[in-house]
């Protein structure tokens, strides 16, 4: 069943002024419940605009967004409920922390939803665990944490709302390679356990290739592709024409295959490639 359906979505910033700019142009697609979708594209391709439309932070100039089959703007007064169902982690989410303790900050979302103390407590603790925060961090001031820990706390703040759809906008921006790897695999684990829908926005093909099942490619406000990761990477040349590159390791595997090495070329991580080549050499 499709959880999010987008129809002919168009968004124009500053309509009617001299700064008019079309950020999104006639985009339609459907996301199935339980999908793990990566949204990829260059800076200014409309990725961030698109995801802000999905949870009703922006109102489309034209077109519609359906959540569970219902138009989210049918009743603008109920838009908060949409935001509870579609959780959104912004770029550099650590700048939204404000409470005295990490615990209170994570509890902000659940409290706004009207959960009881007990429910909130349980959500906060499980969210902190999913985000990889140690329990003694919960009673520290968020401003005393390190950069990476702040990011985790902020992500936990959204996970605590237990959304059906979790949107993450560039969650790994500014993290070191190790921090990035850990965070990505935690997001994947979270998805595997909760079986909810995740939309991950990134400009790094490597990141998206590693953890996403489907990829939505955006270019200058237009939808270019929306398919499974394997199928998208088969169109490497098209991707390169809009300035995106398939992961290096996938490219190498494609080249090996073209040169007559009989291997599976749908490989996105060095580890998988290593195993595949060992297998090939063994046979």
């Amino acid at each position: 069943m499709s959880i999010i359906k987008v129809e002919k979505l168009t968004l124009v910033y500053g309509q009617g002024t001299s700064f008019e700019k079309t950020a999104l142009n006639d985009v339609s697609f459907e996301i199935q419940s339980g999908d793990f979708v990566g949204v990829i594209g260059h800076t200014g391709s409309g990725k961030s605009t698109l995801v802000q439309l999905l949870n009703g932070l922006l109102k489309p100039t034209d077109g519609k967004v359906f959540l569970d089959g219902k138009d989210i703007w049918a009743n603008p007064k109920k838009i908060r409920n949409v935001r509870f169902k579609v959780g959104m982690v912004f770029q550099y989410p650590e700048y939204q922390l404000f409470e005295e303790t990490v615990y209170k900050d994570i509890a902000f979302g659940p409290k706004n939803m009207g959960m009881t103390e007990e429910e909130t407590d349980q959500k906060v603790r499980s969210a902190a665990e999913f985000a990889g925060l140690q329990s003694d961090h919960l009673y520290k001031s968020p401003f005393d944490l390190s950069g990476g820990e702040k990011r985790r706390a902020a992500i936990a703040g959204v996970i605590a709302m237990d959304p059906d759809v979790l949107i993450l906008d560039e969650p790994t921006a500014g993290l070191d390679p190790l921090g990035r790897d850990v965070l990505l695999s935690q997001i994947r684990n979270y998805h595997n356990m909760r079986k909810n829908t995740i939309v991950l926005v990134s400009h790094s093909m490597e990141d998206v290739a590693r953890i996403c099942d489907k990829i939505l490619v955006m270019d200058h406000g237009n939808k270019k592709m929306f398919d499974t990761t394997e199928n998208v990477f088969l169109r490497a040349e098209e991707l390169e024409s809009i300035g995106l590159r398939i992961p290096q390791i996938t490219k190498i595997m494609h080249m090996l295959k073209q040169n007559g090495v009989n291997i599976n070329a749908n490989i996105f991580t060095v580890e998988q490639a290593f195993n595949e080549i060992i297998n090939y050499l063994g046979t």
Binding site: Q52, N55, L57, R80, R83, F84, G87, M88, F90, P93, Y95, Q96, F108, G109, N112, M113, G157, V158, M161
Partner: peptide, 16 residues
């Protein structure tokens, strides 16, 4: 711009 961003982030967490 920063205010806008923070407002959006808190609205996404259900701030009314």
């Amino acid at each position: 711009e920063e205010t806008d961003k923070i407002m959006n982030a808190q609205k996404a967490r259900g701030a009314d």
